[in-house]
Computed example of a mutant assay.
Amino acid sequence: MNPLLDAEQAVLGAVLLDPGQLSPLEWLAPDHFYRPVHRALFAALRKLRDEGHPALEGEGPVPLSWVTDAVDEAGLHVRGLTASYAHILVSACPRSAHAPVYGRMVLEGAIHRTVTQHAIRLHQEARTGALRGEVDGALRYADVLAGVLTDLARRWGTEPRPVAPATPPAIAPSALPPAQADRVGEDEEFLLSLLVERPGAVGEVVDWLRPGDFADPVHGQLYRCLGALHHRGEPIDRITLLWEAQRRGLLADGTLSDDRFAAICDGVGAGDAEWLGTQVMRSSITRTAAASARAVRALAEHEALAPGQLINHALHALGPLDEVRARWESAHGRPASRASTPTPSPSGPPPARVHAALTRSTRRAAPSPAERLGPGPSPPAARPPSRNHG
Rank of each mutant, 00 (worst) to 15 (best):
Val11Leu: 02
Gly13Pro: 00
Leu16Asp: 08
Leu17Tyr: 07
Pro36Asn: 06
Ala40Gln: 04
Arg46Gln: 12
Lys47Asn: 02
Asp50Lys: 11
Val67Cys: 02
Ala70Glu: 09
Ala70Cys: 09
Glu73Lys: 09
Leu76Ile: 00
Leu76Met: 14
Gly80Met: 10
Ile88Ala: 05
Arg95Tyr: 14
Pro100Glu: 05
Glu108Asn: 06
Ala110His: 06
Val115Trp: 06
His118Thr: 01
His118Glu: 12
His123Val: 01
Gly129Arg: 07
Arg132Ser: 05
Arg140Lys: 07
Ala153Phe: 08
Trp156Cys: 07
Gly157Pro: 11
Ala170Ile: 15
Gly185Asp: 12
Glu188Gln: 12
Phe190Asp: 13
Phe190His: 13
Leu195Asp: 04
Val196Asn: 04
Gly203Tyr: 06
Val205Gly: 04
Gln221Ile: 06
Leu222His: 08
His230Trp: 14
Pro235Tyr: 08
Asp237Thr: 11
Leu242Glu: 10
Glu244Thr: 04
Asp253Arg: 13
Leu256Gln: 02
Gly269Cys: 04
Ser283Tyr: 07
Thr288Ile: 10
Ala289Asn: 07
Ala289Cys: 09
Ala290Arg: 01
Glu303Arg: 14
Glu303Asp: 12
Gly308Cys: 07
Gln309His: 13
Gly319Gln: 04
Leu321Ala: 05
Ser330Pro: 00
His332Asn: 15
His332Ala: 10
Ala339Lys: 05
Thr341His: 04
Pro349Trp: 03
Ala352Val: 11
Arg353Gly: 07
Arg363Trp: 00
Pro367Gln: 04
Leu373Asn: 13
Ser386Gly: 02
Arg387Asn: 01
